[in-house]
Design a protein around this nucleic acid. Sequence first.
DNA 1: GCGTGATGTTGAA
DNA 2: TCAACCTCACGCC
Length: 280
Amino acid sequence: MPEGHTIHRLARDCAERFLHAPVRVSSPQGKFADGAALIDGTEMTSAEAHGKHLFLGFPGFLGPGDTAWVHVHLGLFGKVAFGPAPPPPPAGTVRLRLTGPAAFMDLRGPTVCALITPGEKQAVHDRLGPDPLREDADPDAAWRRISRSRTTVAALLMDQKVVAGVGNVYRAEVLFRHGVDPYLPGRDLTRGQWRAIWDDLVELMREGVRNNRIDTVRPEHTPEAMGRPPRVDDHGGEVYVYRRAGQACHVCGEAVRVSELAARNLFWCPGCQPANVPGA
DNA sequence: GCGTGATGTTGAA
DNA sequence: TCAACCTCACGCC
């Protein structure tokens, strides 16, 4: 489930449970045993997210005034589970376990789980674009790249150097909501279109953090409003096109299409997001 | 029990 | 462009 909203929610959930109390840190699976041992029993003072990256701050150990950061990236398969303390014996392949006074957290299958320095943390921020979920985000930084690029807007939205936190679901859904052809080159998007897409991402992703899931259909297209059956398939929310290939578009009725772009599935509606080249 | 796929990223070719 | 890595749930024998 990991797009940016998942990670920001995770930061919030970690803060609620573990901030400002000594935390037991372990790696039952062993792959993070060295890092875990270094900070075990110390206090967590910060939990923040940038795009799909999570940072948990443990001050003191590196030196006075310096904070060691646990850097986590869930990748495609990473999962986190919370539970009440005391934790059960770890089941399966738990890379990282945090145990606070009242709760524990298990992390499995992340692409990244490492102890890093402030400099290394800064280097991660430096290679990420603006994150719609961060207050410090500058959408013009993304626009500078998009407006100069011949790359498709679908690929640009997934490029974390351009925008941080957008994944395959938000990419497909936000392009649908703005009627933008996913294959449109970035340089052919208007500044107004970009602003509208950005503002929409801010709103959609904040909603995603609140609900811990992705819902993108407007009120008039909900199952209740349309009298259609709700999505039962997976744990996901209501969407327009993501993983709906072959099904009728909620808005125009045309069959939703899927194609492969940079080894990822791209979903869109040819009726609502027509190519702007006549006859193409 | 086996094969497949998934909301991601990196690094080599 | 492709393989590699991380894990688990699901469908199909």
